[in-house]
Design a protein around this nucleic acid. Structure first.
Lengths: 256, 256
DNA sequence: AAATAACGTTTCAAATAATGAACCGACCGC
DNA sequence: GCGGTCGGTTCATTATTTGAAACGTTATTT
């Protein structure tokens, strides 16, 4: 692995649940030597990608990341545009709604709204979702470039539950249905007892940029609720796409 | 420079004004060889820190950065908490209001609200501000750790305009005034014709975490307006600090 | 209170990964 | 068709990264 890759994989050890980690801990989890880990952290800290707590000496993600993320967001206001509609959808469905972007080969969860229920589907910001076994993933693939779809369906696919579809043909069928319907459904494909619907947020070129999804405990979800939520999530995705493409038409056209 | 540092300095070439850059361009600006630049970009792309436009082959900042920034923000909801108050302040002052965090040795602008005026102070998200010659910097230093202050005042300080204070003693005086007053004033210390007031957002330990500032063209700014804005920005900073420390008291205490 | 374990940090010879000049094919404007 | 620029690739040379060991400090255990 390249040195840069190592440094980034250190950053990826941080999560919402564990936002601060010590040197030895980072070394242990990354598998790098303590000295190596430290040198990487010092390099990262030199550019504000990590900060070190003065008291505990633990490391945490730094302001430099916020800076770059905001620069990205200024060019392409995905979060800014989508979050209000995610909120609305969370309010109207009273279930967990999450927003994801595509990154490398998975979906990256960038925003989540949780309902007040005690029994709810819990998703953390930053969580990575596989493409083939989540409603979000299927909705993305339904409007993704052929290369992306092919890259996803080649190689063996993990089965997370007994319900996970792992045959390319079955997944393709799901994608077609999602494309026609305007939203995808995934019944316990990633976690037992969770049922989700999702719809793709699309650019001016027609390809998916991100995903909005509603996830709920299957126990309290009727078939009628699924349809209702599906239509709502489809509508929300359409609205977000419209707002994005309306305001930034020229930029998005350039990408096409 | 470490390889990691080189990779990050590539990321830092992107800005709000130039959010997409080609390989040769990046190589030229960074001073690295084209082959080196590309290897670094490939490593970054492998983790979603940059993406490549399929059409133009240009690179842009990637979703992986948004992910990490959101994880950071989940732990320490600086933006989330502060942005509404930045908006309010922008509305009531009708001038540019910006929010910054401390990173490495400078301030990192993470949010900006611009007024409707054509003649206004323009600040981009991601812009880096020096500590010694901006209202924001002085307000930060006024409540920073001694090491930080010392590190800033040692070595030669750049004079950006004829008004820039560069003698440590004069800067210390500014800091003291800011500490007593509750807000700092910087009269054309960074750019000719711009006058700013700023106040520190502080953690439970009393040290500055970030800064909120109002910047305006000096031409239309009266002494009375400065005082009024100073009090408003002080109040906004106090409110943000309170909200941050109220909700996350246990976390912030731990840092103390 | 002493012993011990764990932590962050530094060092330096050995190992490995980064480097860059040259090269390739593709594309663009002339 | 031609010169220029682009993104991308190659490979011997070179410089950077690496990790075991050791140090001083700080918690934890005995």
């Amino acid at each position: 692995m390249s040195t840069v890759g190592k440094a980034i994989s250190l950053l990826e050890l941080f999560s919402v649940d564990e936002p601060e980690l010590g040197l030895s801990d980072l070394a242990r989890r990354s598998g790098f030597d303590k000295a190596t880990t430290r040198r990487l952290l010092v390099a990262l800290a030199g550019h504000g990608f990590v900060e070190q707590d003065i008291g505990t000496r633990h490391y945490r993600l730094g302001a430099g990341l916020s800076r770059l993320a905001r620069i990205r967001e200024a060019r392409f206001p995905f979060l800014q545009t989508a979050v209000p509609l995610v909120r609305d959808l969370a309010a109207s469905t009273a279930e967990t709604v999450h927003l994801s972007e595509f990154g490398v080969d998975r979906l990256v969860t960038v925003h989540v709204e949780h309902p007040a229920w005690a029994n709810r589907v819990n998703i953390d910001i930053g969580q990575l979702l596989p493409l083939h076994s989540t409603a979000s993933g299927i909705a993305y693939l339904a409007f993704a470039r052929d290369e992306t779809v092919k890259a996803c369906l080649t190689g063996s696919l993990d089965a997370f539950t007994a319900h996970t579809l792992i045959e390319p043909a079955a997944i393709s069928r799901c994608m077609s249905e999602a494309r026609e319907r305007g939203y995808s459904i995934c019944d316990q494909g990633y976690e037992e007892g969770v049922i989700s619907v999702a719809a793709a947020i699309r650019g001016a070129d027609g390809f998916a940029l991100g995903i909005i999804a509603v996830a709920a405990p299957k126990a309290r979800t009727t078939a009628a609720a699924i349809t209702e939520r599906g239509l709502a999530v489809r509508e929300a995705a359409r609205e977000i796409s419209m707002r994005l493409n309306g305001e930034n038409l020229q930029i998005l056209r350039r990408q096409a």
